[in-house]
Deep mutational scan, measured.
Amino acid sequence: MDPFVVLVLCLSCLLLLSIWRQSSGRGKLPPGPTPLPVIGNILQIDIKDVSKSLTNLSKIYGPVFTLYFGLERMVVLHGYEVVKEALIDLGEEFSGRGHFPLAERANRGFGIVFSNGKRWKEIRRFSLMTLRNFGMGKRSIEDRVQEEARCLVEELRKTKASPCDPTFILGCAPCNVICSIIFQKRFDYKDQQFLNLMEKLNENIRIVSTPWIQICNNFPTIIDYFPGTHNKLLKNLAFMESDILEKVKEHQESMDINNPRDFIDCFLIKMEKEKQNQQSEFTIENLVITAADLLGAGTETTSTTLRYALLLLLKHPEVTAKVQEEIERVIGRNRSPCMQDRGHMPYTDAVVHEVQRYIDLIPTSLPHAVTCDVKFRNYLIPKGTTILTSLTSVLHDNKEFPNPEMFDPRHFLDEGGNFKKSNYFMPFSAGKRICVGEGLARMELFLFLTFILQNFNLKSLIDPKDLDTTPVVNGFASVPPFYQLCFIPV
């Protein structure tokens, strides 16, 4: 058959498939802009700032609406009420993970971030239990974070109060905490193996944040037939998995079943207990991918939040002064901060919360999916439909947070200066898919920041009023603009 005829037939089939998918069930789905064949609503979305586009569309179609990214149908949730109703009140029905062709290629359905069903539930339950087990290797997770915080302070001392970009050092600290939990080992910041790991993690975040990856996920045929950065992403992930597998083999040879040292040991012990169960989800494949998931999810998000926190503290020296006064009063100079201190430091706690609220790190979270046909607000959402959640619409709700575009710790303080919780605080998402490392991340943010401010004054290279804190939105995360500062020993 003539190649031209084959091409026309293929394009015609794709067009018909697109029209059929977009028209099927439209009477039951939430409203939304009319999609174009094949490309859907992509032309109506700013790929570099999806969150802003969703906010604009919500003003037209309401808090629940339908979009098509290519052939992929998505239902968008915008605003606290619908997000709570879906992710919390109907948590089980909305607990699936959205379709990610690239991740599915890399992870093969294993791990904790992109798995679904029984596998996801069992691996998540085990990971939560293990991360909360403060007795691994007779050292609590808090001990590990405190140790890394001391190392971080010593690295900052080496800058000798000269101007520096904190990106690298602030990236090393949370990565080392995860390494300590998974591998029972922290690395020197100049260790070549550690630097290679950091390089792969950072490069992957840069790649994932590009519009090209959005295109690959919406048109998965590209993955096999086109060159691009997605190939580098898959190569980096394969490198990390190979490295983790080597460490798993080392653990198998040296493990003491009665004295687990780290996450890998705990997983291997669980595998041993379930070795007679042919349906067990505790396999080497799941261990390797879960460890890679924890490394990827637990490094860049925390380091970016820390980097943004220091920029905001530079911009608002009056806030920094209040935090340091609270540190001096509650902790002093002669001991290290600990998590028990947080309950006695409402202002510092409010500042950490406000940093996370203000920066809105992951504006749309990772997409969910419905696990069955769901009736939601008089609409029928078919099983498997991807759910896109606007966390921006919750964290920047102007009824809950007056002047949401302003950095103001009073958003989390009552009139008496006591810490005030808010149900709208969802930087880790909400419901059954809430970030498994939430507790660890909150511990790291509090301890790293208090250790830094206990030991250093922060000095800006320019007038604080002239510092730009506008986030650089890159399609996946909101990151701070480049800046330098000086760490002046107190």
Rank of each mutant, 00 (worst) to 15 (best):
V330G: 04
A291L: 14
L43E: 04
W212F: 06
G91K: 06
E272A: 14
F65Y: 13
T392S: 14
N286P: 02
G296E: 12
E85R: 06
L311H: 04
N403S: 14
R329L: 12
A149I: 02
F226E: 03
V436L: 11
V319H: 10
I223P: 05
S24L: 12
T302S: 06
T305C: 03
R433V: 03
M339C: 15
K420C: 09
V472P: 10
I269F: 07
P163H: 07
A477T: 12
L485S: 06
I327D: 00
F183Q: 06
N202S: 15
F476A: 14
E122N: 10
L16T: 03
N107Y: 09
M240H: 04
Y225N: 10
D256Y: 05
K247M: 09
L16D: 04
E241I: 08
L361I: 14
P382F: 02
T386S: 10
E274T: 09
I19R: 15
S303G: 11
E93Y: 13
A103W: 13
A309D: 00
G40F: 00
I141T: 10
V208H: 11
D224Y: 08
G91M: 06
P346G: 05
C338P: 01
S429D: 02
E325D: 14
S18A: 14
L170V: 10
E444I: 04
K52A: 11
N116D: 09
I47R: 14
H344P: 06
E85L: 06
T364W: 15
F94T: 05
I112S: 05
V352G: 02
L245C: 05
P409L: 03
N107A: 12
C372Y: 08
T55Q: 13
T302C: 09
R261M: 06
Q193W: 15
I181Y: 11
F425I: 03
V208K: 15
T386E: 01
T304Q: 14
F282H: 03
L7D: 00
R139V: 15
K84T: 10
S460D: 04
D191W: 01
H251G: 01
T371I: 08
P211N: 07
S429P: 03
S23N: 12
L447T: 15
E104K: 01
F401R: 02
E154R: 11
V5G: 14
